[in-house]
Each structure stands twice: as C-alpha cells, then as structure tokens.
Design a protein around this nucleic acid. Structure first.
Lengths: 336, 336
DNA sequence: AAATGATGAGAAAACGTTTTCTCACGTTGA
DNA sequence: TCAACGTGAGAAAACGTTTTCTCATCATTT
C-alpha cells in the first residue's frame, strides 16, 4: 500500500559508499568518531547522488517540524502580506517554512485549519487579522504549541505584538510642527477602532487638549467630506492634516486640489499605513506613517521560534515603533 | 536528545483501552476484523483522550505529506492572494495545507525555499507571479514533484493555467456595444506585456481593424494622459473606453470628471482586474473585467492534487474564462 | 468427539532519520 | 606477551503510524 519514493535516501548513500546508514548519518552531521577520509568520501558520494535528508523523518524524531502556521482573517492581505514577508524572511534562515491559512471569519473553517496544522505538528502559530482590537473567530488558548498574536487581539497572558499607534501619531504631529504648521487637525476612522482612538489620544496630547479630531469612515469619500466640512465653515482653515489612513489622505488631497488649495504649499498632509499603491500614486505622493509591519513580522517569527525552542519570552503586549516615510505631501522634504 | 512530546499518541489510546496499537489503528480507520463493540469502545476512548494521529508519521509511511508549496514573486500580493485563497479553499477539504513562499526575484532565495519544500516532501508546487509572460527566477523542471504554473510562464510540456485575456477583452467590448457605444478605444499597459497585446488583439478583432489602441504605463497617470490626448485633438471623442487595468480606468474617470465629461452618461468606462480597492472607490464605481483568479487557484489546487495522486493531467496552456463585474461606470446596469 | 472454519486481536515490519551502545581491531605500555 | 586502551564502524532502538501476517479461541459441521 505504501507508495515507493523515487527520492534518494540515506540507505542509497550507504549502499553507494559501502558503509552502514549510521556511519553515513554521522559523517554528514559531523558527529561520532570516524576516519576523516571516510567522512569526506561519504560526503562527496552523498553530494554526487544528490542526497537530502527527509525532513519528515527528522521531524518525527526530534518532535520539531520546522513549520509554523500563520492564521489570518485579513482576506485582502493589506496587513497580512507584509507581516508574512517579515516572518518568512526571519525564519527561512532557520529552515522553517510557513503555512498560510486564510480563514474568512468562519469559526468552522478556522478550526479545520488549526486542526490540520496541529496534526502536521507545527512548531507554533502566529495569529493575525485586520484589526488590532478584534480577535480571530477561534480559540487559540490551551493549544499544545506556542501562539503569538501579531496585529490582532490575544488572550490575556499571551504574547501580543502590535504597532505603536501613539508613536505613529506623535511622529506625524512632530513632522507637521517641524515644517511650521500651527493649525493641525486629525481626520481619521471610526472611534469604534481602538487604533483610531489611540492615535487620536496621542494626537490630542501632542497638539493640545482642544485639538480637532474628526472621526468617519476609512475611505477616500470621508476625506472629501472632511475637507468640505473644514473649508465650508467660515472658520480658520487648517494648515496641516494628519489622516488616519492613506485612503482618507488621498481623498483629502484630491478634495483640496479640486478647491484650488495647494498641497503641500498651503496645507501639509500626512497619511497612515504607507500603502504604496495609494501613497505613491497620490499627487503629490503621500508622506505617511509606516507601521513597520515587516519588522513586526520578523519579530513575531523570531518570537515563535524562541518559544518553540523553549526559551522564555515575556508575555504581554509589546508595541513596536512606527516610522515616517517622507514623500511630497507634507513639504519640507528638502530642507530637513 | 529526542524531546518528549506532550501529545497523546496511539500508544496512549491503546494503553487506555487495554488493547494493542494495531487494534486501535484498525478500529479508528474502520479496517480489519474486530468486534463492533471493541471498535466503538476504542473510538470513544480515543475521542475522550483527544487523540489525533500525527500527520508526520502518516506522511512518512504513505510518502504523501498533504502539503503543497505556493511559490510567488508577486510580493504585493495583488494576484497571489486571490489565487492562494482559491487553492486553499479547494485543498482544505482534502486535508492539504499550503506553504506560501515569497521569493522576491532572488534566485538564491528561491532555491532555498524550493529545497526547503522538497525536504519537507511537498506533494507538489504551484508557481505564480506578477505577469503571465515572465517565469520565476528558478528552474522548476525535473523536480521530483509535480509542478503547476498558474498565472506565470511555465516550461514547455508543463501544465500552465492562466486567465483568458482575449475573452476578457471580448466581454468588455460586447458590453460597451450593448449599451450603445460606437466609438470605442482601448487604453492599456505597455505592449511589452503579452497580456496587453492579447487583449489589444482581441479588442481589434471585436471593434475593427483600425480600432484605436493606446499603450502606456499601468498607472492612473497614464489614464489622465490618455484622456488629455483623446480630448485634446479636435477629432471626434470616444464614447466608450476599455482600460487595461483598474488604475488606468480610475485615472480616466477622474480626468473625465475634471473635464466635465459625465461617466457613464457621456462616456462608458470598463476596467480590468476588479481590484476592489480601486473599482469600488472610483466615482462612479468601475464596471470591470474579473480574471476569476480565485477560480484559477481552485483549479490549480485540484490539478496539483490530481498529479500528486497519479491521475493523468493534460499538459499545455489552459485559459480560464473571465467574467464582467457590473458597477456604474459603464451605464446600462439597470436596463440589462 | 474430532476436524474445519470463522472471528478477533496482537506481533512485527515498514517509512527515513538520529543516537546510543556494542564490538572488533590495532596500538601502546609494562 | 599480555593487558589496557583508543579508534573506527556497525547494530539496534526510537519517533508514531499503518498493514500484513500469524495465532488463539470458539462455534459449527461431520
């Protein structure tokens, strides 16, 4: 019943070299006692026949599969892909591969995927999602493998990695100040998102208690609308706008252009996310806050590795700093 | 040296049931001869202790790992994610998990990933990329596992799946005709992309030999530029524009609005890709051609499964049909 | 009552590794 | 010359399954 493998095994190498499999194993792993000429001969023969050890067999023996699972409900991949990229980059050097499981807010599907991963003896699971304050529709507590939550809500006592929204907001305000802006407002997403609230709080702290924060949708349309409101009243108009994401920022920039307001000469705009497809294509290109998701992924990967290999990791929420990506929409990109 | 697993094995079940492991195995797999009460008792005990067979051990035995690798150099994920979603959806029912490997046009990294997957005994590899007419920077020929190329160039004699660009173009023209458009032009990407050329050819075939095709970049800016050219001369302006992707379409729509040309009343616009983030956010929302990438992924997944299980699959290029997603930019969305 | 057959369940081998243990052989020292 | 020791290499067990083979036991038939 068992299918025959066409792959070359350690037995083939042993036969070709006229030694036992144990000797081959020791030769290739540089362990055991052995005449160095024997070792070299075996190594060369192994290379000749193209031997590569079957990872499944090693996994079975070591109880380490050198795989981790990435569980996400961010079907669009806006946040998952950069994270994935960082995880993969950090782990490939350690011979670890990543199972990507897209569960579309479907608890049953999530369970199927988690079970499949556990059956395949993943060394750990990284959970991620599309918002920081919502958990995946599956309970990952009490699993026989370590779990790291990245950019999604985790159970108490777990390791949770996320971007520092407050830091991002501070970075933006700091920059707007540096280019001489005085009347700064914040146009952002719904206040039902903790990210939006955290950024807004940090924004107020940086700008002043009565700073104007406008909550709306995460859309271009809301950017247009906000500009209409701000420029519609006969109050003093802002000279700096910090937007909650790049889509809103694009809406704001477009709306200002339509009104004949120049960006960045008259008003400086800063976005959030550094979603290149928006930030780069907006005219002028957006200066925006980057959440360093790839770095977050790298950290998540190394953390799950630490846990898998039994090293202690401090539990709790850990916030990683953001960075400002300077393009043209804020101005001052030359003189600073 | 070998770490102790905390997981419950078939031996634990055997001990708990007071029978041998072979009996447990046969009981759970509904094979062998056995008193049905024994079988049921074992099943219930196995469920009680939460036994799940170690997939690694089974893989070793069956020489089937129930994993496949998805290799991509589309770091942004525009095409990879829908594909991945389809693959995963098709395979999860068969207990197959997917390794996602992002190789960023780096041959060395690609080789590392491919080797890691082969070591882990993947049942097959699906290769994908960001263009149909470029191959990945790694040679997948002669691998000991089946390979399917999806949305990327494959070696001759291999199985290659791709979207039918001609079909997409025909669909668009057909629709423009149906809403009464007579003067239709095609604004698309560089003619160094075979996709662009195939669509352009099909467009010409549908509209007429001397139909106007404008090649440029795949950007919004090119959409603006093309409109400036079309409306700048004192020739008759088009009443229908079929765009090579949604970004160009968005540029065209925006440029027309700025000129006071109404979409879809005066001009009908159709995009390509159905990239929701563009198609949905454009005002009016874009009617656009969808390449059915998820379906493509599903097909790729089932194909690699066929190959892995030794079923014959016809080699060669297979083009899957597109579909038109109707929103507002083309008009006629109510009466048809 | 003895031979046959059916039934139930366990022993062992296999998958491809790694590691521990054992052993044969040759060299050294007294 | 013989014991002690070092060296090189193989045998066997282990990881967790599945499957084939073997063997009791019991019921049925002659």
């Amino acid at each position: 019943m068992v299918a025959r493998s066409s792959r070359v095994t350690i037995h083939d190498v042993a036969k070709a070299a006229g030694v036992s499999v144990s000797t081959v194993s020791k030769a290739l792993n540089d362990t055991g006692r052995m005449a160095s000429e024997t070792r070299e001969k075996i190594k060369s023969i192994a290379a000749d026949v193209g031997f590569r050890p079957n990872a499944l067999a090693r996994s079975l023996l070591f109880n380490r599969s050198f795989t981790v699972g990435l569980l996400t409900n961010d079907t669009y991949g806006r946040f998952t892909l950069p994270l994935m990229s960082g995880i993969s980059e950090a782990l490939v050097d350690h011979g670890v591969s990543v199972f990507l499981c897209a569960i579309e807010d479907d608890p049953a599907l999530a369970k199927v995927h988690v079970d499949a991963m556990l059956d395949k003896q993943v060394d750990g699971i990284i959970a991620t999602g599309k918002r920081v304050d919502r958990s995946l529709p599956v309970d990952l507590a009490g699993l026989p493998v370590p779990v790291v939550y990245a950019f999604t809500e985790g159970v108490p006592g777990s390791v949770i990695l996320t971007a520092d929204d407050s830091d991002g907001a501070r970075l933006a305000v700091e920059r707007l100040r540096k280019v001489g802006r005085k009347r700064i407002v914040h146009v952002t997403g719904p206040d039902s998102f903790v990210s939006a609230v955290e950024r807004a709080d940090a924004f107020r702290q940086a700008v002043g208690r009565d700073a104007l924060v406008m909550h709306g949708a995460w859309t271009e349309a809301w950017g247009h609308e906000a500009v209409a409101m701000l420029w519609g009243e006969d109050k003093e108009t802002p000279d700096g706008i910090f937007c909650g994401n790049d889509q809103i920022a694009r809406g704001v920039v477009d709306a200002l252009r339509e009104r004949g307001v120049r960006v960045p000469e008259d008003v400086s705009i800063i976005g959030f996310d550094n979603w290149e497809i928006f930030a780069d294509q907006t005219r002028p290109a957006l200066t925006t806050v980057d959440m360093n998701l790839k770095e977050l992924g790298r950290t998540a990967g190394l953390t799950i590795l630490d846990l898998a290999e039994g090293r202690a990791v401090e539990a709790g929420l850990r916030k990683l700093p953001c960075k400002l990506v300077v393009r043209q929409s804020c101005g001052g990109d030359r003189e600073i």
